[in-house]
Design a protein around this nucleic acid. Structure first.
Length: 418
DNA sequence: TCTGGGGTCCTAGGACCC
DNA sequence: TCTGGGGTCCTAGGACCC
């Protein structure tokens, strides 16, 4: 038997289901951004609230369950959400605040087990197999976790417990909001097979449609179809994975140290842009932010990609691999501009521009960063620019910059990058 | 209805090398 | 002359997820 609870799970005794095989937890914060905002705006509790940017082109990033009752969904254009729910209160997002609460809840998770794999800002997998001896069954651990998160942050979360990652994730989704759902190993197929194919990880609109045309409606339908047939339909990798998932097989373990593979920034203009000066200005800003994040992570990048979305929403990417990896804003910017100038943009209006650094590798350690109390991390070239401006070109050599000259740039510390 | 911004993974073709 | 096979890298696009 499975236990499902909202407030209900506190009324079901932990012993009513044997959770001992369900050692993977998926914890997912409920309407995370909106819930965080409500902590500061308690008068809005019980009302439809939407988190969305203020540009006319914004989409919903988070919505309270009261707003969802009107059909509001995340990724929906704000204009549409307003039509569905004119009474909704719209709050612009405050990323730093969400990051703060994210760190707090992740740290609670790490109190339970070091085997925490964050999936996004508001969800994580936990492997609690090793914590059972100390803390009790996964069911007991999950209840304790939910209580602690609520007591220490005022936020509710939902937890799925199962013997594999993807079943745990499905379980948390189906227990939302403020719930707990435990799927013991022996109940896995009974839980899985009635679900619609779209519930599976990796099955979105396009795949669900393509499978639907072939009569596949439920996960059970997939399980009853030979693996090689599925692979013919949706590709070798996706088909094989679909078949395994339909039989409850998911070999992925909880990995607490996954590494980032790319870093990028993109921006949709409030109105479409044709002016190359504006495009380059945006690229420069994005390149600097990308470079700062690369260095903060101790990474260099070998491939720079430019992304353009035109007024008609067609989107292209152009990328180039550098001869030398870099984390320097100027190099990233120059490469992005070069890619931009290779495009025929005559008479084209651009809706979005973005730059991404790919093929990341650990930095060699021969670049410098400057820490400023005002600006945060900046890069060696800017340190040089500032120093040259102040002392004249002849007075500055990189060797003297390292550590020695910081007293001449008050409020700054110079360090080699990790 | 008119579509954000942050990502990951997969496919497929061509280049290139042995 | 009328055409191998495997491996790896590069590039572009698209599906998908939160």
């Amino acid at each position: 038997m499975s236990v499902k609870g909202g407030q209900g799970d506190r009324q079901v005794s932990a012993e009513s289901v044997d959770s001992s095989s369900a050692t993977i937890l998926h914890v997912d914060m409920d309407a995370f951004f909106a819930s965080v905002e409500l902590l500061d705006r308690p008068e809005l509790r019980g009302k439809p609230v939407i988190i969305a940017g203020e540009s006319g082109r914004s989409v919903v990033t988070s919505a309270t369950y009261e707003a969802r009752a009107f059909g509001v969904r995340s990724a929906m254009p704000v204009s549409q959400a307003k039509r569905l729910c004119p009474a909704a209160v719209i709050i612009p997002p405050h990323g730093a605040k969400y990051a703060h609460y994210s760190r707090r809840v992740m740290s609670i998770f790490r109190d339970v087990t070091p085997l925490v794999e964050p999936l996004s800002i508001d969800e994580a997998f936990l492997d609690v197999a090793g914590a059972r001896r100390l803390l009790g069954s996964p069911g007991i651990i999950a209840r304790g976790l939910r209580e602690r998160v609520l007591a220490e942050t005022g936020l509710t979360c939902s937890v799925g417990a199962a013997s594999t990652k993807f079943v745990a994730k499905l379980a948390s989704t189906r227990s939302k909001p403020d719930g707990l759902l435990i799927i013991p190993a022996e109940d896995t197929l009974g839980f899985l097979h009635p679900l619609p194919v779209g519930a599976l990880w990796g099955v979105g609109k396009a795949t669900a449609e393509s499978l639907g045309k072939r009569g596949m409606r439920t996960v059970g339908d997939l399980a009853a179809t030979p693996r090689d047939v599925l692979q013919k339909w949706v590709g070798v990798a996706a088909g094989g994975r679909l078949y395994d998932l339909a039989w409850g097989r998911d070999p992925r373990s909880v990995d607490p140290e996954s590494v980032e593979k790319s870093v990028g920034h993109e921006n949709t203009f409030a109105t479409d842009v044709s002016d190359p000066v504006l495009l380059r200005r945006e690229l420069l800003d994005q390149s600097e932010r990308v470079a700062v994040r690369l260095r903060a992570a101790g990474h260099v990048s070998r491939t720079i990609a430019l992304k353009l979305r035109f007024a008609d929403f067609t989107t292209i990417t152009r990328s180039r691999t550098l001869s030398e990896p870099t984390s320097v804003a100027r190099r990233i910017y120059e490469q992005a501009v070069e890619l931009l100038e290779e495009q025929d943009l005559v008479g084209r209006r651009i809706r979005l521009i973005g730059v991404r650094a790919e093929q990341l590798a650990p930095a060699g350690g021969d670049s410098l960063s400057l820490w400023s109390e005002d600006d945060g991390w900046r890069e060696a070239e800017q340190v040089m620019d500032a120093a040259v401006e102040r002392f004249g070109r002849g007075a500055i050599r990189p060797a003297t910059l390292l550590g020695k000259q910081t007293r001449d740039l008050p409020g700054h510390t110079i360090r080699p990058d990790a």
